[in-house]
């Protein structure tokens, strides 16, 4: 060290300990991977979703076609591993086909609500003032009804059908999403980087796009993932009440309804759709927990 100007020395002392280069995504995955419960749940959930999507390949029978001679077979019958229902239709087949609708009813309302509620919440939180009051107090009106009752009310007003269930649940989900988004945005607005962005001459849109949305994403994401299982259960419940798909079609909620008369004849078979609803909802929640932990690990 013959030559060393003072600047270089100062620089070295400040940056003596350089942390290792790391990718956010890798850290996220590492934390998630360590959570074995979430990992197993993810695998189970993946198997359920994949086999529902591949129903037309995997299912051995037609979901709508039953044999009168093979009604109400118990679990484990040869050729009908999960038994048959009151019309002689294979339960396994109907579970796979029904899962498509049930899972769709779990995911779609959450996506729709995240878009609408997110938009409303961000608008309210970012601009504040009168706009905030108008948006948030209007949404509070929806809050004043119990969620399930509101969903039943809306879907019975709209009429039977899967689409109407999705619309009804979306409407029920908008207010809580908007509230989460609004409070998250308010938190972000207090940060100095928002002031810095404003003082650089950035417009509202680029501030929202670059600074606000990025920083509320994890909160919104975690909240929305927990909503999927609620949506799934709610949609199944509405179907169970007869507000969902019309009878011949397969859907977990309506299957549960149709099988409930057979509970004394064939109790185990009756439980199958319920088990799948339970399993999907449980694994979704556990995966959501794991995702939350992994997302927060960054800070």
């Amino acid at each position: 060290m013959v030559q060393s100007n003072t600047g270089a020395v100062a620089e070295k002392s400040i940056f003596a300990s350089q942390p290792k280069e790391e990718s956010q995504l890798r850290l996220f995955w590492e934390v998630f991977y360590r959570n074995k419960v979430a990992l197993v749940s993810l695998i189970v959930l993946f198997l359920i979703v994949a086999s529902c999507l591949l129903a037309s390949v995997l299912a051995p029978y037609d979901p709508l076609d039953g044999k009168v001679t093979e009604r109400l077979l118990p679990l484990g019958t040869h050729g009908h591993i999960l038994g048959t229902d009151e019309q002689g239709r294979d339960i396994f087949t109907r579970i796979l086909y029904g899962g498509r609708l049930s899972l769709l009813a779990g995911v779609m309302p959450v996506l729709i609500a995240a878009c609408i509620g997110g938009f409303l919440g961000v608008t309210a939180g970012y601009f504040g003032g009168v706009l905030n009051t108008v948006i948030m107090r209007t949404l509070d009106i929806f809050y004043s009804f119990p969620a399930v009752l509101l969903a039943i009310g809306i879907s019975s007003a709209l009429g039977q059908g899967m689409l109407n269930i999705i619309i009804a649940i979306s409407i029920v989900f908008v207010p809580p999403v908007a509230r989460i988004a609004e409070s998250a945005v308010k938190g972000v607005m207090a940060e100095e980087y928002i002031e810095a962005a404003k003082s650089s001459g950035a417009g509202h849109f680029s501030i929202i796009w670059n600074h606000v949305l990025m920083n509320i994403f994890s909160k919104m994401f975690v909240y929305s993932t927990t909503q999927i299982s609620i949506s799934l259960v709610l949609a199944s419940g509405l179907s169970f009440l007869g507000l969902g798909v019309s009878p011949p079609a397969a859907e977990w909620g309506i299957m549960l309804n149709n099988l409930k008369q057979q509970i004394f004849i064939n109790p185990m078979v009756t439980l199958i759709p319920g088990v799948f609803i339970f399993l999907s909802a449980l694994t979704m929640n556990l995966v959501a927990d794991g995702l939350r932990d992994a997302l927060e690990a960054k800070k």
């Binding site: 100095e192 980087y193 003082s199 670059n210 920083n215």
Partner: peptide, 16 residues
């Protein structure tokens, strides 16, 4: 007129 803020822990966007 640009400003350097007080709190370096809140003046940078953590996601950028």
């Amino acid at each position: 007129m640009q400003m350097v803020f007080q709190n370096p822990y809140s003046s940078l966007n953590p996601k950028m």
